[in-house]
Nucleic acid binder design. Structure first.
Lengths: 128, 128
DNA sequence: CCTTGACCTTCCCGTGACTGGAATCTTTAT
DNA sequence: ATAAAGATTCCAGTCACGGGAAGGTCAAGG
């Protein structure tokens, strides 16, 4: 399989796949013409990566997960630890965003939003 | 005021303040020794920037807000529009993160997290 | 056989918003 | 006089790619 075909199959842009090779996440073979040749295991890996990235795992976490995935004697606890760590990160991000939203929503609420220059949003940004 | 002093006052790292000057958000004067000299208006601007950034506004949005802030004849509707746009962005991010969290939490829930290699998290990442 | 167009290759630069570090002044304190 | 603190510029790196240039390869059509 050439890169275009596997790109379509996995939904990842060809550029991304080349990048994943660059940083050692996949190691496709090469044909006589220099083209990358992807086999089924590469397709699996790339699909895995696509899903893990969609869940917000960092590249390094993906690398870790891939290693665990390939290690048939891994402990599921190790996988779970990575996932739980990431869950915490997500929760923290959500909390931070929710706090921003609340503050900002309150400012917006108090702003008339008309032609007049008086604006509680700007005032709120000036100082407490 | 030198950069260290204003950095402490605004809570922004000196590096960040220099960067803000680089991209034209603030334009401190210069003393005879080449040091930046910050005046009160600079302090206000930097405080404003710090708060706006803390609320997640991008640098370009901050630039826009600063311009509105300096324009005494602005319409509060313009400010409100920027803020509402950003609120939408925040909501979208929260939704995306919540979806990740839910999916991931479900995978984690089903994983025993013990010494055995069987792991629903990895299986969930393999395919649907 | 030649050309066209689709596909592939590498390489380098740009993104956002900084952060770290090096090499070099200037000021301040002892 | 010297040492430390604080200032300056500039360069490089971060994360995870994306854009685009310059060029090699392949299949189809004339």
């Amino acid at each position: 399989m050439n890169i275009g075909e596997i790109a379509e199959q996995t939904g990842l842009p060809a550029k991304t796949i080349r990048y994943y090779e660059d940083i050692g996440l996949v190691t496709p073979q090469r044909g006589a013409n220099g083209y990358r040749v992807f086999r089924e295991t590469d397709a699996y890996k790339l699909t895995f990566l696509g899903r893990a990235r969609a869940l917000g795992f960092s590249i390094e976490q993906c690398r870790e997960l891939l290693a665990l995935w390939e290690d048939r004697s891994r402990a599921s606890a190790d996988v779970r630890a990575v996932a739980l760590g990431h869950l915490d990160d997500i929760e923290a991000k959500i909390s931070a965003l929710a706090a921003m939203r609340d503050t900002l929503a309150e400012l917006v609420q108090n702003c008339a939003g008309d032609d007049r220059p008086d604006c509680p949003i700007l005032k709120g940004l000036e100082g407490p």
